[in-house]
Simulated scan of single mutants.
Amino acid sequence: MRVTVFGATGGTGKHVVDRCLAAGHKVTAVARDPQAVPGERDGLTVLRGDVFDKESVAAAIAGSDAVVSVLGVADRKQPTTVYSAGVANMLAAMAESGPRRIVALSADGVEPNPNVNIGQRLVMALVVAKLFKHQYKDMLAMERVLADSGLDWTAVRPPRLSDGEHTGSYRTGAEPLKDSSTISRADLADYLVTQLEDEDSYQKVVWVST
Rank of each mutant, 00 (worst) to 15 (best):
residue 70 V to S: 13
residue 96 E to L: 14
residue 76 R to H: 11
residue 78 Q to R: 10
residue 112 P to N: 09
residue 98 G to W: 12
residue 94 M to F: 12
residue 84 S to L: 07
residue 100 R to A: 13
residue 94 M to A: 12
residue 60 A to N: 07
residue 109 G to M: 00
residue 81 T to A: 15
residue 59 A to M: 06
residue 99 P to G: 07
residue 97 S to H: 13
residue 73 V to P: 11
residue 82 V to T: 13
residue 69 S to D: 06
residue 59 A to T: 03
residue 75 D to M: 06
residue 91 L to V: 13
residue 83 Y to I: 06
residue 88 A to H: 10
residue 109 G to C: 03
residue 98 G to F: 13
residue 77 K to M: 09
residue 111 E to D: 11
residue 84 S to T: 12
residue 75 D to V: 04
residue 63 G to Q: 10
residue 105 L to P: 00
residue 78 Q to D: 08
residue 69 S to P: 00
residue 82 V to S: 06
residue 109 G to S: 14
residue 97 S to K: 10
residue 69 S to E: 04
residue 76 R to E: 11
residue 94 M to W: 02
residue 109 G to T: 03
residue 111 E to G: 09
residue 69 S to W: 06
residue 59 A to I: 03
residue 107 A to F: 00
residue 63 G to W: 10
residue 104 A to R: 07
residue 70 V to N: 07
residue 99 P to A: 04
residue 91 L to M: 07
residue 112 P to G: 13
residue 59 A to E: 11
residue 65 D to L: 12
residue 100 R to S: 13
residue 64 S to Y: 07
residue 90 M to W: 05
residue 103 V to H: 08
residue 107 A to G: 04
residue 79 P to D: 09
residue 87 V to F: 11
residue 64 S to A: 15
residue 108 D to I: 02
residue 93 A to L: 06
residue 99 P to D: 09
residue 61 I to W: 01
residue 67 V to P: 00
residue 71 L to C: 04
residue 98 G to N: 07
residue 99 P to C: 06
residue 103 V to Y: 06
residue 66 A to E: 01
residue 80 T to Q: 04
residue 105 L to I: 01
residue 71 L to W: 01
residue 67 V to F: 10
residue 77 K to V: 01
residue 99 P to K: 12
residue 65 D to Q: 12
residue 74 A to D: 13
residue 92 A to E: 14
residue 76 R to G: 02
residue 98 G to I: 08
residue 87 V to R: 04
residue 100 R to F: 11
residue 89 N to V: 03
residue 63 G to F: 07
residue 86 G to T: 09
residue 81 T to Q: 15
residue 62 A to F: 01
residue 73 V to M: 10
residue 86 G to H: 12
residue 87 V to L: 10
residue 91 L to Y: 07
residue 80 T to M: 05
residue 70 V to K: 02
residue 99 P to M: 05
residue 87 V to G: 06
residue 78 Q to F: 08
residue 83 Y to Q: 03
residue 104 A to N: 08
residue 74 A to Y: 12
residue 108 D to R: 03
residue 101 R to I: 01
residue 61 I to S: 04
residue 68 V to Y: 08
residue 63 G to M: 08
residue 86 G to W: 15
residue 71 L to R: 02
residue 84 S to H: 14
residue 77 K to P: 08
residue 95 A to R: 15
residue 79 P to W: 08
residue 60 A to T: 00
residue 64 S to K: 07
residue 66 A to Q: 02
residue 100 R to K: 13
